[in-house]
Design a binder for these strands. Structure first.
Length: 561
RNA sequence: GCGCUCGUAGCUCAGCGGAUUAGAGCAUCUGACUUCGGAUCAGAAGGCCGGGGGUUCGAAUCCCUCCGAGCGCGCCA
């Protein structure tokens, strides 16, 4: 990256200065960082090192800056000059050549432009959505789905091996699932004309009626007369398997595909839960009280009270299963776990971390991302979004209404740290204004110009063979600057686990492209062929960057719209 | 009551220690079609960055406090 070269220059200058005894510091320990100034007048890159060093060196920032600048190599066709500004900023002005070279690089790296290997060797497991199999994927889950999937793309882009996982809460002691099975059985019997009521607090959603119809069609009335208990267990498994199937379909329509669907029930059948509990006992992290088994979460994770692992009725709690589950993740070779949860589970973070620690694993290797709530609005009223009451808004509906691209982009638009209000009507209405189209149009526009060139029998030239130094128009340089930012933007977004930065960035690229398009014609009459070719090459480079960027977001790049 | 999170333009949000003008989009108002497709571009207007203290050369950004909103505090998941 270009800033690495600048860093090397600065480090060189520091070494010289400290060699002369002007600055007294351990050069290898100095952390040098660059930023791209908001205002172009402040150069291509700015460095605040002098201010940062001011305290440790006991010298005024501007004086330090001067020493560094005096010892830095400039005027060699790469770095034009360095200026000191304001309280002690060093502003670096590069020759436009470096921007022109970006075109060559983009062309050469093509699909790989923007990627790097900084996370090589890291094996990351991202677990997200993991909705109970008691209803369809809702728009509320859409946020986690878009976030998790895109984070996966991002981390993979910087070299990690990424696996996406959905945890299916299908354990036998799930009361929700039992209730769901009973509700389904009631629907089934109702369809057969029997006068059966839904269980109290049962699941009211229409989707259960649909599933009941499927069952009726496939198996007829053969479950009508069987003993209640037998039917209950049968319908419980029907309910969950049908639901999971549907969840898979809905998520795939949203562009999310998991590497694994991990069943909680497997943890039990493989006795991993009991083994985990035994381990905790053996290591003194669990104790008995009031007939139950407790985990020392106070000691392990500063919890305000200890938590139950095994109830007095001998059923394990969620803590036990989840600890065992995370141990399983580590055992599969992942050295970094990312869990995406809704903010309503934040009270649970400590417990899980305690559980992980009690099993001898490193709690810090597990990052838990809490997405703020998505509040539902319908007809101007808040909706609780309860699956039981059947008032959820399915993600499927949104995807069908506005399309996968707009739906995904919608959720990636802002940080997961802010509470979002979701109004389906508004989302539909706004889909025409969704910035995703602005970005996609930028891509289509590039394709269009290139296509037009071919129609005019102009061969689209390679950036390598073009007179790049002709690109000196403000809008050309602005666009090139944006394209040059891409690798850094990917890195930052991945480091911060913040995909929403990319949705902001893609709009900036779009803007730069559209402005360039307006002001810098390539194929109009009277444009010098050399300039025309250089501009065509720039369109092509932009096309590649936008396509790569949208790809990271899981959004398609149409050639025409 | 205790804990976690969030308060930035009319609305939806970026910015999360840096540069005397705090940025986008939508909505509002003006302009640009003899066009490489206007799903575009140019411009205007709109803010004591919830209030108050503090740390710092420098704060929307870090700390404290108050106010407001959301969410948690089960032998539920």
């Amino acid at each position: 990256m270009i800033t690495d070269q600048l860093k090397a220059r600065v480090r060189e200058a520091l070494t010289i200065a400290s060699g002369k005894g002007i600055l007294q510091l351990n050069v290898s320990k100095v952390d040098i960082s660059f930023e791209t100034p908001r205002n172009k007048e402040f150069g291509d890159f700015a460095c605040n090192l002098a201010m940062a060093l001011s305290k440790t060196l006991g010298l005024p920032p501007r004086e330090i800056a001067k020493t560094i600048v005096d010892n830095i190599v400039t005027g060699d066709g790469f770095l034009e000059r360095v200026e000191i500004a304001g309280p002690g900023f060093m502003n670096f002005y590069l020759t436009p050549d470096w921007l022109h070279e970006v075109m060559v690089r983009i062309e050469r790296e093509d699909d790989f432009y923007g990627r790097n290997r900084s996370l090589e060797g890291e094996k990351v497991l991202i677990e997200f959505v993991s909705a109970n199999p008691t209803g369809p994927i809702s728009v509320v889950n859409g946020r986690a789905a878009a976030l998790g999937d895109t984070l996966g793309n991002l981390l993979a882009a910087i070299g990690a091996i990424v696996s996406r996982e959905f945890y299916v809460n299908d354990a036998l002691n799930s009361t929700q699932l039992n209730l769901m099975g009973d509700s389904l059985a009631a629907r089934y019997l109702q369809l057969l004309g029997r006068d059966v009521e839904l269980p109290e607090d049962g699941y009211q959603g229409e989707y259960l009626v649909d599933i009941a119809k499927d069952i009726l069609q496939e198996f007829g009335n053969r479950f009508e007369t069987m003993p209640d208990e037998e039917r209950a267990s049968l319908f419980r498994s029907f309910a969950s398997s049908k639901m999971i199937e549907q969840q898979k379909t809905d998520l795939e329509a949203f562009g999310v595909k998991y590497d694994t669907w991990f069943y909680e029930s497997d943890l039990y059948s493989n006795e991993e839960v009991s083994a985990a509990i035994q381990y905790m006992r053996d290591h003194g992290y669990a104790y008995e009280k009031d007939g139950a088994l407790w985990l020392k979460t106070m000691e392990l994770a500063n919890d305000d009270q200890d938590r139950v692992l095994v109830r007095s009725n001998e059923k394990e709690t969620y803590v036990a299963a989840d600890a065992a589950y995370h141990l399983n993740k580590f055992k599969r070779g992942f050295n970094r776990l990312i869990d995406i949860w809704g903010a309503d589970h934040h009270g649970y973070v400590m417990r899980l971390k305690a559980g992980i620690k009690a099993l001898g694993c490193d709690p810090d290797a597990c990052e838990i991302i809490l997405t703020q709530m998505v509040l539902l609005m319908r007809d101007g009223e808040m909706v609780r979004g309860s699956k039981r009451a059947g008032d959820i808004i399915p993600l499927k509906d949104l995807v069908e209404e506005v399309g996968k691209d707009a739906a995904r982009f919608y959720f990636l638009l802002n940080s997961y740290e802010t509470t979002a209000t979701f109004d389906l009507e508004l989302a539909k209405k706004q889909s025409n204004d969704n910035p995703v189209f602005y970005a996609q149009y930028a891509h289509a526009r590039c394709c269009n110009v290139l296509r037009k060139a071919e129609e005019m029998n102009v061969t689209v030239p390679k950036g390598t063979h073009v007179k790049r130094s002709l690109l000196i128009h403000d809008k050309e340089l602005d666009l090139l600057r944006k394209l040059a930012d891409f690798p850094g933007e990917v890195q930052t977004a991945a480091d911060m686990l913040a995909p929403h930065r990319l949705t902001a960035y893609v709009r900036e690229i779009g803007q730069a492209l559209h402005q360039f398009y307006e002001e810098c014609p390539a194929l109009k009459e009277g444009v010098d062929p050399n300039l025309r070719d250089a501009r065509l090459a720039l369109f092509d480079a932009t096309r590649i960057v936008v396509r790569n960027l949208l790809g990271l977001l899981g959004v398609s790049s149409p050639q025409r719209m």
